[in-house]
């Protein structure tokens, strides 16, 4: 059997030491195949973003492995050795801070092209323009600095920059949460097209509607652990974990449908939660 495109097995990450130690991710496993989107939902502090950083190699796990087509990506000191590096790329949440304000969209994407492929500046520019055009950014907007672009446009520039590496997996951390609804729809259409072209997408979001729309399978995270996973439609239709039920009941309009929103007691550990713990005292 061929190994999955990208597979994380029993990944754990902890920050700090002693009494301040926070176990951000605890024994999480997931796999994604070409043309497939896997969703990760959970609230702030559930470990979603740390997991994303592990998948793209920005964070070394304390335990567990990440493999790309069966090859471990954390070999030696670094992550994603050699030709593997370009294979997994990331789109960050905030399109207002993830782009260099002094670089035009075109330069940002061309830089990524030139980094990953040996080519002339003119070739990098042409390829960047083509990528941006593909993302719905016309040449007239491509030469603009990020501050002159809308949030949705910036997010599509970020996607173009990620695609410039020619990845097989895209890890998108809350890509739609900072942009307007119409721009969200545009970005999701784009993701759908990329999926059809065979890209794998790990989509992290606290917006269940977005996950439901794009991801066939979903992992629900809480306190660093996956509390429920499976087919998105099944989980939406018949959630088996209390926390998943709470999440689904929190979708605006669901309450009216008869499901009462019951706030979960907050008993997470860590920095963010010592504040909330007061509520539970």
């Amino acid at each position: 059997m061929t190994p999955p495109l990208l597979r994380a097995t029993d990944v754990s990450v902890a920050f700090g030491r002693g009494a301040d130690r926070v176990r951000a991710v605890r024994g999480v496993s997931l796999a994604v195949e070409p043309g497939e989107s896997v969703g990760i939902v959970g609230e702030s502090g559930s470990g979603k973003s740390t997991l994303a950083r592990v998948l793209v190699g920005l964070q070394r796990p304390d335990e567990g492995t990440v493999e790309l087509r069966g090859r471990s990506v954390f070999e030696g000191e670094g992550a994603y050795p050699g030709a593997l590096r370009r294979q997994v790329q990331m789109v960050f949440q905030d399109p207002y801070t993830s782009l260099n304000p002094r670089m035009s969209a075109l330069d940002a994407v061309a830089e990524s092209v030139a980094f990953h492929d040996r080519c002339t500046r003119a070739q990098a520019r042409d390829r960047a323009l083509a990528l941006l055009g593909d993302m719905g950014i016309p040449p007239g907007d491509a030469v603009k600095k990020p501050r002159l672009l809308s949030g949705g446009q910036r997010q599509r520039v970020s996607v173009a920059r990620a695609l410039a590496a020619g990845p097989s997996v895209l890890v998108a951390d809350e890509p739609t949460s900072a942009i307007d609804q119409s721009a969200q729809a545009q970005l999701l259409n784009l993701f759908n097209r990329l999926l059809r072209d065979g890209l794998a997408i790990v989509l992290i979001s606290h917006n269940l509607a977005v996950i439901r729309y794009l991801s066939r399978r979903v992992h629900v995270m809480r306190d660093g652990e996956v509390v429920e996973e499976g087919e998105t439609e099944r989980i939406f239709g018949a959630p088996s974990h209390d926390y998943t039920r709470t999440l689904i009941a929190s979708i605006p309009g669901r309450e009216a449908a008869g499901t009462e929103v019951s706030p979960q007691p907050t008993t997470r550990d860590g920095n963010a939660d010592r504040r909330i713990d007061l509520q539970a005292l």
Partner: peptide, 20 residues
């Protein structure tokens, strides 16, 4: 009308979303 059509939570999973 266009805003309503671009709502994700009302769309079938994976269907083409209408944008403005």
């Amino acid at each position: 009308a266009a805003l309503n059509r671009s709502r994700i939570e009302l769309a079938a999973p994976g269907s083409e979303l209408r944008t403005i």
